[in-house]
Amino acid sequence: MTTNEALINYCLRLGDSSLILGQRMSEWCSNGPILEEDIAMSNIALDLFGQARIMLTYAGKIEKKGRTENDLSFKRLEREFLNNLLSERPNGHFGDTVARNFFLSAFSFHLYSALKASADEQISAFAIKSLKEVTYHLRHSAEWIIRLGDGTEESHTKIQDSIENLWEYTEDLFAMNEVDKILIKEKIAIDLNTIKPLWNKTINEILTKATLNQPENSFMQSGSLDGMHSEVLGHLLTEMQFLPRAYPTAKW
């Protein structure tokens, strides 16, 4: 694998994870539990789409096959998507969404903090810019984790269940392969083992504050680096890709 091939793969990982979570968040638009949350979740979706655009455009550019951000978003199949498994988890109830976003935004927060120093200018610019937005996303989900965990008996039970149910997808966030090896050597990517303790610390601090328990690792899901997803991604893509596939010549 060449450095350029590794870089394309890496950009797709970053771009796809933002895109798929963005699509999930946009599913809340007009379905939020209260107006403020509806607006908040739609805003988060927008930020994520913006972040995805930067990375997918860049991936298309360095691939040199003429694929645009739209081609990459709307004309790939499940197995070609490299988003982490957690980002595709269905919204479930509000607590499920909050728990998923909490794990993910804490991960992005630490990842982008480290990628600010990437030797690749575009990845560094992406990380600096996205970090400003992800800080708000983390704050939003962390506040809700505390509010629900330290809330009523019902909200406490529900959010604890959400955390337990999603925990098995968190290990996949830190998976690495040949791509990472090549890019770490070039100082483009970072060793995810270095941010894992930071992520754990953030999760632990907030869960403790929320009077919630951090689950133990038991069976942990994996596969996103090889494009192995659960069936829910297919359903998500069916909706997301419908229009450009049904009307390939459609324009804004």
């Binding site: 403020e36 607006i39 805003n43 704050r139």
Partner: peptide, 13 residues
């Protein structure tokens, strides 16, 4: 502060 997210991405409520 009512919400970190307002009528546009750049504003809070």
């Amino acid at each position: 502060l009512k919400s970190q997210f307002g009528s546009t991405a750049c504003k809070a409520l």
